[in-house]
Each structure stands twice: as structure tokens, then as C-alpha cells.
């Protein structure tokens, strides 16, 4: 049996090795010695390393494919608009890293320097790190179990030469498992500002997101707020809006109200985002480009068929709104 005894008090608890259920457990001696409870020395090292990182934000969602990476990219770009703000984007989705593609950095490699791995810089003030930069081919599958993924996350936090950073954005895989626990545990001593939770409007997504919020409560990670992505689709031909992912239970708004967490904003669905990914142009969205024109428009048929990119503009506005609230929440005194 690999399963731990039913009433295992946990290796970190005071009862470790001493509880009634520890009798006969092969690890009883080890637990009783307290060796299991000793914190990983990496936590202290990471704390030391993170001294130069002012704010740490986790982007989470219980559900997959709701736009965690897209929003992380938006957020990184949005924050990096200000030249004086140093932004770092860390992708800890070990098995499905999407950040390199979204940022238009596919095929880039990480360099080793005296002070550790150097992130890949998209702009002078925007550094990116992902397991995708360590793979030799885009087809390479990272078939790793938990402990190996945790090791990688530890390395990302401890061994990457992040330098002076104002915001570290951590993009995560879906779920509430190894990667999430590790990120929270390794960063525990360094203080995480909190988590931004991404959802889509439909209940199938919200039910997973409620679990994610319950995870945040369990691990005592503050929830900065919720962003609703893919909030509605406007037909490029007739301009009428359809809810592709209908908010049958009231969407993120009702959930946020019920769980008493702030809603940072709603970002509409825009087909052009997908087009731009496919063009490998990366998602270099400029939040300040208020002319409302999409650079892809004159060139690509799909884009040309539609009116000037009002939707892309609304993605910008919505993101900018969310960004404003997010900054507001981070910077307000606790």
C-alpha cells in the first residue's frame, strides 16, 4: 500500500510518529525523529533570493483553458508599459507551458550565467521564464510526476537570476495539486501578495474555481480578486452579442458576491487573440494604444472582414480596468 495510514497526523505535525495510527507505520521512526518536519532549506534560500522582488502575484484557476496564461501575459505587458517598472513572468505549468508561445518567444533558450539562469527578456523591463525554454523540441513532452515538477519550481524560484523586480507574476497549471502547493510553500517565507483567479462565465468552470478559492483559504493565500474571461462574443458581422459560455448561475459576479471576493473585471472573447497567437506574432498588446486599431487588421483576411477592432479595444479597456483594481488592491494597506 502506498497510501498513508488513514489517520496520519502528517509529517509536519507535533503528533508525527507519536499518534495512535503511527503504530506499525514503516516511517514511524523517521517521523518521530522530527526529520520530516524540518523545513526545506530552499525556503530560506528562496526568501533571500526574493528580497529583490517587491510584489509576487499568482495567477490561478481550478479550470483549464480559461485564459490563465493569456491573462498573465496581459498583466505582464500591462505592468511593463511603465518603463520604470521591472516585470518578471514565471510559467510553472511544467507539463503544458503556453507562455513562450503567447509572448512570441518560442524557440528561445535560457542562458546560464554566474548568478544563475537568465530569464528571456522580451523588453528591457520584462523577463520571462518557462520550462518551454528548456525543451529541445516543441513536441517534447514533460512526463514528470509531482516531486520532479516541484524540483523544477524550486529551481525556477531559487536559481533564476531575477534581479530587481517590481512584479513577479506566476502563471500556474489548472488544479490544486503539486505545482500550486509547491509554489505557495516555497514562497511562503518570502510573502506572496495574493492570487488573481481566472474563470469563464459558465458553471462548469465556476465550480472548479470555487474549489480553487477554497484552496487559497486552506493555504492562507489572499485572493486579490477574480477576473472573468471570455465574457461574451460579439459577432463580427452583425454586432450582436452572444454568450458562448452562458453564465447560467450568474457568472463570476454572483460567485464573487457569494464568496465575498472582489471581481476585478470582465474580459470579452475576441477571435483576433487566437489569430495573433497563430501568427506567432505573440500577444504584444499595447494597453495604451487607444486608437483602437489592431495591427493585424490590414494584413489578415479574417481581421479585415470585421470592423475596426473595437473588440480588441474592449479587451484592452477591460484588462486595464482589472489592472487598475489589482494595483489598487496590492498597494492598499492591509
Amino acid at each position: 500500500m502506498e497510501e498513508v495510514p488513514h489517520d496520519c497526523p502528517g509529517v509536519g505535525s507535533a503528533q508525527a510518529g507519536r499518534g495512535a495510527s503511527c503504530q506499525g507505520c514503516p516511517n514511524q521512526g523517521l517521523c518521530a525523529s522530527g526529520a520530516g518536519a524540518a523545513p526545506d532549506p530552499a525556503i530560506e534560500e528562496i526568501k533571500e533570493k526574493m528580497k529583490t522582488v517587491k510584489h509576487k502575484i499568482l495567477v490561478l484557476s481550478g479550470k483549464g483553458g480559461v485564459g490563465k496564461s493569456t491573462f498573465s501575459a496581459h498583466l505582464a505587458h500591462g505592468l511593463a508599459e511603465d518603463e520604470n517598472t521591472q516585470v518578471a513572468l514565471l510559467d510553472i505549468d511544467i507539463c503544458g507551458p503556453s507562455i513562450p508561445k503567447i509572448m512570441g518567444l518560442e524557440g528561445e533558450q535560457v542562458h546560464q550565467s554566474g548568478s544563475g539562469w537568465s530569464p528571456v527578456f522580451l523588453e528591457d523591463n520584462l523577463g520571462v521564464m518557462s520550462v518551454g525554454f528548456l525543451l529541445s523540441s516543441p513536441d517534447d513532452a514533460v512526463i514528470w510526476r509531482g516531486p520532479k515538477k516541484n524540483g523544477m519550481i524550486k529551481q525556477f524560484l531559487r536559481d533564476v537570476d531575477w534581479g530587481e523586480v517590481d512584479y513577479l507574476i506566476v502563471d500556474t497549471p489548472p488544479g490544486t495539486s503539486d505545482e500550486h502547493l509547491s509554489a505557495v510553500q516555497y514562497l511562503a517565507a518570502a510573502h506572496i501578495d495574493g492570487a488573481v483567479i481566472i474563470t469563464t462565465p459558465q458553471e462548469v468552470s465556476l465550480q472548479d474555481v470555487r474549489k480553487e478559492i477554497s484552496f487559497c483559504h486552506k493555504v492562507k493565500l489572499p485572493v486579490i480578486g477574480v477576473v472573468e474571461n471570455m465574457s461574451g462574443f460579439i459577432c463580427p458581422k452583425c454586432q450582436k452579442e452572444t454568450q458562448i459560455f452562458p453564465p447560467t448561475t450568474g457568472g463570476a459576479e454572483v460567485m464573487c458576491h457569494d464568496l465575498k471576493v472582489p471581481l476585478l473585471g470582465k474580459v470579452p472573447l475576441d477571435p483576433r487573440i487566437g489569430i495573433r497567437f497563430r501568427l506567432k506574432a505573440g500577444y504584444r498588446i499595447s494597453l495604451e494604444d487607444s486608437r483602437g486599431r489592431c495591427p493585424a487588421c490590414p494584413v489578415y483576411r479574417e481581421a479585415r472582414r470585421s470592423p475596426p477592432c473595437t473588440r480588441l479595444l474592449s479587451v484592452r479597456v477591460a484588462t486595464k480596468d482589472s489592472l487598475f483594481w489589482l494595483k489598487h488592491r496590492i498597494h492598499q494597506p492591509p
Partner: peptide, 18 residues
């Protein structure tokens, strides 16, 4: 693809053919 229920225009919301 997504067929707009209002005008029957088919939009490839998440692009196409991948």
C-alpha cells in the same frame, strides 16, 4: 466554429484547422 444565432455567420472563434 461558432454559428451566430442572429445572422448565421460562422466565426472561427478559436481560429481553424489546427
Amino acid at each position: 466554429g461558432f454559428v451566430c444565432p442572429h445572422c448565421a455567420e460562422c466565426t472561427n472563434v478559436f481560429s481553424r484547422g489546427g
